Amino acid sequence: MAALLLAVGVLVAAFVGYNIGGSSTGVAFGPAVGSTVVTKLGAAALMSVFALLGGWTIGRGVIHTMGGRIVPSSEFTLPASVGVLFFVGVALLISNRYGVPASTSMTAVGSIAGLGAATGTLRMATMGRIVSAWVVAPVLAFWICAVVGRYAYPYMDAVFRLDAADAPLFRWREGRVAYPVGVNPAASRRQFVGSGLVVAIGCYMAFSAGASNVANAVAPLVGGGYVGSSAGVLLAAAAIAVGAFTIARRTLDTVGNDLTDLPLLAALIVEAVSASLITVLSALGIPASLAVSATMCIVGLGWGRATRTVRANDALSGEGETTVSMGSLAADRADDPSDVPRIGEEDPEELAAADLFDPTAVGRVVILWVLTPSVAAAASFALFSLVPLAE
């Protein structure tokens, strides 16, 4: 019976990792595939390598937190481990089926917290640290990007002028496996530099996703001592790779996520800031949601850009008015940094361009940011209060 339960636990862990690979590849390499810099196969390969690297290095701290610091490791019996992973798998299944942006990290933590509450072993100090990070990280993401959007974005846009290439940078030989056979002579040096940045930041996102997400797949099994830490990382990374090479192709067809509609420079800023926040939290052993941080980065960057129509002292005195639109990121760029209008001199109509994404989507993410771990914790508490957890 124990061997069967362990096999079920490994299969559920692999299912979790498989779905993480499917969703995270689009987040990390959507801009790179959308701008024809890399193929879907190349994106999957890069995702596999850098997710493994993130999990093997920084991700171990998150595994230790979720596998023994929220509740004692002794609480992760095989039934408990399978139960926790079951809730994570169900959340991912619902997320992929209905497009609901459920956070696997928050669902996993909620499930473990429910186990701890049911057994009276929940360590409140650790949970308080994690929940505080969940509150602070999105706020920090918003304000970092808001400052960039208000004070630096138009100048960066004028200097770098990053645009998706109209045609592939390389000439490709088509077949079962496409591969480059030469450089597109029409491509400029600026396009190559921009493309290099797109790929580099995509790899950084993949590293961050691996560091944060391997624990969601294997922490209960590692915590219970059924799988070693290194073996757990390899299991999760292998499952993420399978997802990257299979179901991620669908998400890459639509360039993955809300970053699709962002200008390339804005997408890179959002990816760099959100990945940095999650990497830092992972290094501290704190599981957190990349989707929530990225969403708040998008909102903050657009809000900061739109507020350039009003000077700070006018806004505080109530003399200035502005219509904040996320479409401000799509406003016409200046040809030179010296041509960028000063704060308070921007044209409100120009910055009130068409919306980049549906604001209701942001509300949905924020609501589920609170709802997902809460429901997971309540369901886990109910299950583990009724079901015996002995081996």
Rank of each mutant, 00 (worst) to 15 (best):
V10C: 14
G30H: 06
G83P: 10
A330F: 02
V362M: 03
Y226V: 00
V62Q: 14
A164M: 11
V147R: 03
V375C: 08
S103C: 04
M205Y: 00
A13W: 10
V12H: 05
S385W: 09
G34E: 03
A236D: 08
G54T: 07
V177L: 15
L389H: 12
G304D: 12
N313F: 06
A352H: 05
L281H: 02
A219L: 06
G55I: 04
T119V: 00
A376P: 13
V366G: 02
T77C: 07
F15K: 01
G89I: 00
V198S: 13
R249C: 03
S212P: 01
V362T: 13
G67D: 07
D157K: 15
A80L: 10
M296Y: 10
A219N: 10
A45G: 06
A241W: 09
V62I: 07
T260P: 00
V88M: 02
M156L: 15
L265A: 06
I63C: 10
G243F: 04
V233M: 05
W56T: 01
V131C: 00
V16Q: 05
A113W: 00
L316E: 12
V109C: 07
V292C: 02
D347T: 10
A51Y: 00
V139C: 09
G59S: 09
G196S: 07
F170L: 15
V49T: 13
T322Q: 08
F15V: 06
L6C: 09
G17L: 07
G194D: 09
F384A: 09
V12K: 03
L301K: 06
G196I: 03
T360K: 12
V135I: 15
P168N: 11
V131T: 09
G116F: 01
V199G: 02
T279P: 03
G30L: 04
A133F: 04
V365T: 15
P79H: 05
V310I: 14
G59N: 12
A379Y: 08
N19P: 03
I144H: 07
D332V: 13
L316N: 01
A379L: 15
A352C: 01
Y153Q: 04
Y151M: 06
R190Y: 02
A239R: 07
I247Q: 15
V310P: 01
V198G: 09
A158I: 11
V38R: 07
L46C: 01
E319G: 13
V362Y: 01
F86N: 00
N184T: 12
V218S: 09
V233N: 05
F15I: 07
R171I: 14
S229C: 02
I20W: 05
A146R: 11
S282D: 10
I130L: 11
V148F: 05
A118E: 11
A382S: 13
S317C: 04
A390I: 08
L356Y: 08
L259N: 13
